[in-house]
Design a protein around this nucleic acid. Structure first.
Lengths: 226, 226
DNA sequence: CGCCTCCCATCGGTATACAATACGCAACGA
DNA sequence: TCGTTGCGTATTGTATACCGATGGGAGGCG
C-alpha cells in the first residue's frame, strides 16, 4: 500500500520537481535564501539529495513564477525586487484584487462570507495582541479567500504568484502602529462592503488598501535599500 | 565569430529550449497542433532534431504559460480552452488592459502615440480591404503597444501570456461583418481617448471592447464546441 | 606599474542511459 | 459473454556523463 493513499487526498502522483519547487519557494519567501543569492545547481541538488535534473525543473518553475531569474550560462539567482518593480507589482495586484472584489460580491456564497468573517475575527484578535506574524498570515489568507470567491482559476493563479513575490518584501516591511490601526480599519470596511455585496465599493476599497500598503513598502524600500 | 552576433541584437545567448519553446508556441497558437493533442516527447525531439531534455524544458515553459498541461506520467497535452475558462481569461485581460490604458494615458510619449496611430492607420487599411489575418495581427500589436506604454514589465508579461492563450481561440472566431465594423469604430474611440490622455475613458473603452470581443468568442464557442 | 591577453577551473546546457509508471491487450474465470 | 486480472509495451521521470561557455586569475606586453 502506498503511503500517500493513506491521506485524505485520493490520487496525487507528485513528481519530485514539484516537491523541490515548493521547498525552494518556502526558503525564498521566508528569506532564508536572500535576494541576489546565486543558486548553484550542484550544491542544491546535493542539499536535497536529488539529481540536478529535477532541481533544474524546479528552478524553471520558479523562474516562470518570477521568484528567480535564470541568466544563460550564468545560473539562477533569487530575484531582487526593486522599487520600480514593486510599484508595478502593486499596480497589477490592485487591478486584479479590484476585479476579484467586484466578482466576489456577485458570486460569493453566504458560507464564503462567513468563512472570511471568521478569518477576519481571528485576525482582529492577533491585531489586538500585537502578534504581527500571525496578523500577516491571516491578512494574506483573507485576501486570498476574497480572490477565491471570484471563481476564476486564472485570476487565482496569477494573484497567488504576484502575492508570493511581494511577500518576500512585505514580510520585513514592519509598518508603524498607526498604519497598522488604519489597515485594520480598512479591513473592517472591506468586510462590510462584501457583506453588503457592494461590488464597486469593495473594488475601490481593495485598490486603495493595496495602494496604502505599497506606500508603506515604498518607504521601507527607500530607507533600507536606497 | 558567432553567427548570432551578426544580428542587430547585441548580446543574446539563446539556450536551445528557448528556441524550441518559441517554435512550439507558434505551432500551438496557429492551430497546427490542435487543442487536446498529446505531445510525445520522443517524437517532438526527433522532429526538432534535439534531445528530450531541452524539449522537456520547453514544455515546462509552455506549461507555466498555460498553453499546455502536463499530467504526471501521462505527458503533455495542448490546453483546451473551455467557455468558462475563456470567460475567466477575458475578465482578467479586461482588468489588465483597463489598468494599462489608465497608465498609458499618464506615461505614453508623443512618439508612442504616434506609433500607435500608425499601426491604427495600417489596420484600417487592412479592414477596408477585408484582410482579416492582417487586421488581427495589427489589432494584436495595437493592444500590445498600449500595454507597453504603461511601462510595467510584469503587466506586459502577464498580458502577453493571456493574449497568447486567447489567440488560440480567437484566431478562428470569425466574427460577423457588423461586429467587425463596430470593433473598428471602438478602436477609433480608443485611439481618440489615448490622444486626449483621458485615462478613465480609455480604461472603460478597453474594458467594453474586450467584453464585446468575448461575446463574439462566446457565441463561436457555443456554436462549435458546445 | 597598469592593462590586456590567454588559460584554466567551474558551472550551466545538452545528450544519453536507467528506473518507474500508466495504458492496452489478452487470457482466465464466473 | 462479460468482468477482472496479469503482463508487456510505450512513455514519462530521474540520474549520470559529456560538451561548451563564462569568468577570474596569472602571466606577458606596453
Amino acid at each position: 500500500m502506498n503511503v500517500r493513499t493513506t491521506e485524505t487526498e485520493a490520487i496525487s502522483p507528485r513528481p519530485l520537481h514539484g516537491e523541490v519547487a515548493e521547498r525552494l519557494r518556502r526558503l525564498i519567501i521566508h528569506g532564508e535564501i536572500p535576494p541576489g543569492e546565486r543558486l548553484n545547481e550542484r550544491l542544491l541538488a546535493e542539499r536535497f539529495s536529488i539529481s540536478r535534473t529535477p532541481l533544474r525543473d524546479a528552478l524553471k518553475l520558479l523562474s516562470a513564477e518570477g521568484l528567480v531569474e535564470i541568466l544563460p550560462y550564468r545560473g539562477a539567482v533569487v530575484s531582487r525586487v526593486t522599487l520600480d518593480e514593486a510599484e508595478g507589482l502593486f499596480q497589477v495586484l490592485s487591478a486584479l484584487e479590484g476585479l476579484a472584489g467586484d466578482l466576489a460580491c456577485q458570486k460569493a456564497t453566504e458560507a464564503d462570507i462567513a468563512e472570511i468573517e471568521a478569518l477576519h475575527a481571528d485576525m482582529r484578535r492577533h491585531y489586538e495582541r500585537g502578534e504581527l506574524d500571525e496578523y500577516f498570515a491571516l491578512n494574506q489568507r483573507i485576501h486570498q479567500a476574497i480572490v477565491n470567491c471570484a471563481q476564476n482559476a486564472e485570476l487565482t493563479a496569477i494573484h497567488s504568484r504576484l502575492a508570493q513575490r511581494i511577500r518576500c518584501v512585505r514580510y520585513v516591511a514592519n509598518f508603524s502602529p498607526a498604519r497598522w490601526t488604519r489597515a485594520m480599519a480598512e479591513h473592517e470596511e472591506i468586510l462590510e462592503a462584501l457583506r453588503q455585496r457592494d461590488g464597486v465599493r469593495l473594488q475601490n476599497l481593495l485598490k486603495t488598501h493595496l495602494g496604502r500598503k505599497f506606500e508603506s513598502v515604498r518607504e521601507w524600500l527607500l530607507a533600507n535599500q536606497g
